[in-house]
């Protein structure tokens, strides 16, 4: 099968590579573009570890072929920091609350909650749990993740 040239805007930078149609977006990001921050957990759309932002919406990058994303904008965990490498308030709250242990689901959790806060800066606990309902974590029992998002929301509230 022939390879397709695929061009994505990843974290604001245009990046290109070649891949067969059957290469998923997450494999393309990791293996072709070297963006290894996004992780693979199940490859069948259940665990959410591979979550990325596609044109502003969180999606699972194992449930999309890279060729389908050609011409689209992707944000990965590597794109959450500010231009000078400063942590986003959400990242900082994840750190402050130790909202992880092994760190494997963390990129997906950050993507899910980052997009939640963009749409709903003042989520309650139920809304936070709903937003990460498709992201499995085996270390934390989710509590410190919820706390981190609550802390971020509180900061947003106080700043506004």
């Amino acid at each position: 099968m022939s390879e397709h040239k695929i061009t994505l805007t990843v974290n604001g930078r245009e990046m290109s590579g070649y891949a067969e149609a059957r290469v998923t977006l997450v494999d393309f990001l990791r293996d072709v573009l070297g963006q290894t921050g996004t992780h693979i957990g199940c490859e069948h759309g259940v665990c959410g570890a591979c979550s990325v932002v596609l044109d502003g919406k969180p999606v699972r990058s194992c449930l999309m072929y890279a060729v389908m994303a050609d011409g689209h904008e992707i944000t990965t965990v590597e794109g959450l920091e500010g231009p000078e490498g400063e942590l986003s308030p959400l990242q900082d709250a994840f750190w402050e609350n130790h909202a992880m242990q092994c760190g494997y689901c963390t990129p997906g959790m950050l993507i899910a909650t980052h997009t939640l806060l963009q749409e709903n800066p003042y989520p309650d606990e139920a809304e936070i749990r709903e937003a990460i309902g498709g992201n499995l974590c085996r270390c934390t029992g989710y509590q410190q993740i919820v706390e981190a998002v609550q802390m971020t929301a509180k900061k947003i509230r106080e700043a506004s």
Partner: peptide, 21 residues
């Protein structure tokens, strides 16, 4: 006290076994 390891995980800079190429 903040956990040292967390810094690399929140920025996508962990180095998991599948990240080595």
């Amino acid at each position: 006290r903040r956990v040292t390891e967390d810094r690399r995980f929140i920025t996508g800079r962990g180095h998991f076994a599948a990240d080595y190429n």
